[in-house]
Simulated assay, not measured.
Amino acid sequence: MEVNGTVAEGFEPVREAFAGNFEALGDRGAAVAVYRDGRKVVDLWGGTRDVDGGVGGAPWERGTAQIVRSATKGVAAAVLLLLHQRGALDLDAPVGAYWPEYKAAGKERTLVRQLLAHRAGVPVLDRPLTPAEAADPERGAAAVAAQAPVWEPGTDHGYHAQTYSWLTGELVRRVTGRPIGEWIAHEIAGPVGADLWLGLPQAQSARVGRVGQVDAPFPAGGLRTRPKRSVADAYADPSSLTRRAFAAITPLPDENDPDYRAAALPASNGIATADGLARFYASLIGEVEGGVRLFTPETVALARGEQSAGADRVLVVNTRFGLGYMLHGGASPLLSPSSFGHPGRGGALGLADPESGIALGYVTNGFRTSVTADPRAQALVRAVAAAAVR
């Protein structure tokens, strides 16, 4: 397996771990990028652009992009935190102060910060949306506005796997008057110089490879002790909150469909290069070469300040969330306790670590059944952590 790209001195273990993902963990095509103090120190890619490319398939290139699933949530969270940073959004205000229709079915006192921390109590829809309905932001917003919470908002937490799309997207539209994908393009991706999109432009479609499932055995012994009831167990139960949360769009969309890629679903269908994802996270914690710094130190503290912790009503394992970001823990090990970021189900990962000044982006065209702590991403995290302390 040929690995292309470069690593700075001291980061050679990342190349070894990346190559190992192809040799032992089933990667078909992938890329990883790492920034330290705003400067790129790892830029690697390999394999084929399409998951089913096989021998002779089009190779993954430096600018190849992929759908990153729930890693999109970290970008969407940045929009709300930047609006707060600019004085346009009060995190302690009721969601209904900006979105009056949301004040229904027991959600009148839901706060903006509770929405970001997966405490809003609406991870499911009593009537799931079809992919076409889900892509209509007005239809999705109406559905979550009418939905009764499954727990009293603010009293517990559970991952809002799909509904996070319409909760964040509609709140941004109400505050700014602009679609969230447009806001990201003009206020985040453009100033930062990051190749990431929510709502893929037609002009960029040739850069995006086909994705698919590539399950392979987990490493011997596993990355962690298997819980008594795993996410996979809960997902197999049609009545569970886990299954219902991920099935808020039914049937699941075809992620290779150009119409799906052109839609803007902030929970699930952002598209990025590894460099774009890493560069975005680097810009949250410092000025990035050729770009800007997005978050003030105070906003970084909001992103990584614990808001939810413990048994997750949806993911069934213990999770930790700041405002829109997963925090370091057993369900999603990051670089250190200071880290914040977001995985994409079965593959992608983006994170920032303010203590070390490191930001990482990993994208792949091969998804596994894992929800968090993908073994390929974790192998890279461990290699970066080892390099960072040298």
Rank of each mutant, 00 (worst) to 15 (best):
T6A: 15
T6L: 12
P13G: 00
R15F: 08
A19Q: 04
G20T: 05
N21S: 13
A24N: 13
G26Y: 07
D37V: 07
G38R: 02
K40Q: 13
D43A: 15
L44K: 04
G46K: 04
G46F: 01
G54Y: 12
G54N: 05
G54F: 12
W60M: 04
R62M: 00
R62A: 15
A65V: 04
L81C: 05
L83H: 12
H84E: 02
A88R: 12
D90P: 14
D92C: 07
E101Q: 11
E101T: 09
E101V: 11
K107V: 01
E108W: 00
V112D: 03
R113M: 06
A120M: 13
V122A: 08
P123K: 08
L129K: 15
A132R: 13
A134F: 09
E138G: 15
A146R: 12
A148D: 13
W151T: 10
E152R: 13
T155G: 04
T155C: 09
H157V: 07
H160N: 04
T163C: 10
T163Y: 00
V175G: 03
I188C: 09
P191Y: 01
D195Y: 00
L196A: 01
L198E: 01
P201W: 05
V211W: 06
V214Y: 03
R226L: 07
S230C: 02
A232C: 05
D233W: 03
A234L: 07
P238M: 07
S240W: 14
A248N: 07
D254I: 02
E255V: 02
N256W: 08
P258W: 10
Y260D: 11
A267D: 11
T273F: 11
T273K: 01
S283D: 14
S283V: 12
L284S: 09
V288I: 05
E289C: 00
G290Y: 12
G291H: 15
T296V: 01
T296L: 13
T299K: 12
T299L: 14
T299S: 13
V300S: 14
V300I: 15
A301Y: 03
A303F: 10
A303M: 06
D312P: 04
L315H: 00
V316Q: 01
R320N: 08
G322K: 06
L334M: 08
P337H: 02
P343L: 06
P343K: 02
P343F: 00
R345E: 15
G347P: 08
G350N: 15
P354D: 00
L360G: 02
D374K: 09
A377P: 08
V381Y: 08
R382K: 06
A386F: 00
V389K: 14
